Amino acid sequence: MELDNIERLLEKYFDATTTVAEEKTLLTYFSQESVATHLEQYKPMFTYFSNAKEEKYTKQVPLKPRKNYYKWISVAAVALFIFGIYFGNEYQEKREAEYAYQETKKAFELLAENFGRGTEKVAYLKEFEVAKQKIYNNN
């Protein structure tokens, strides 16, 4: 009868539905010398559980708080990111202004070149006008 009870308690134990009193019964049964042969495989597990209750942690726990460097690293990363955005935009605007200046300079050079050609043509017109005046004055 007791063996049937132990097997039933083992099933409940592995289903995690046993009470504290039932677990004590299992610990008591498996701490005996004579255990049923088909239940021998569970004896080391329950022996370990009873021995584990006796163990105590004897080391000193350091109570110094750990320094949290992650917070400062994240603050530095955000600051670096904002610094990069600010000066990156300034650099980009400077490059755009330089590009606009270069393009304007090219346009003025082209305009000056064409204006120079135009003044050459005006000089020919002046000579033509002088020649025309000579012709009209002779007639």
Rank of each mutant, 00 (worst) to 15 (best):
K56P: 05
Y42D: 03
E127I: 07
H38N: 08
A123H: 08
L63Q: 09
Y42W: 02
N51W: 00
A77H: 12
V122P: 02
A107I: 09
K64F: 03
Y42V: 03
E7W: 10
K71Q: 00
A77G: 15
F49W: 15
K67D: 06
E22F: 06
I85L: 09
N5I: 15
I73Q: 10
K67I: 06
T17C: 14
K105G: 09
W72T: 06
D15N: 03
K94W: 14
F46D: 07
F46H: 06
L63S: 14
A100M: 12
Y42S: 01
R95I: 14
K106W: 08
A36S: 11
T17V: 10
E54Y: 05
A36F: 10
H38F: 10
K126T: 08
D4M: 09
E11K: 11
A21V: 10
I73G: 05
L111T: 05
L63W: 15
V61F: 09
Q133V: 03
V35M: 00
I6A: 09
A107K: 08
E98H: 06
E96I: 13
V61W: 10
A112F: 04
D15F: 04
T37N: 15
R66Y: 06
Y48V: 02
E129M: 10
Y86Q: 11
A77I: 10
K67S: 06
W72F: 12
L3S: 10
L26S: 02
R8H: 11
K126V: 10
E54F: 06
Q32Y: 07
K67P: 02
A97N: 01
L80H: 01
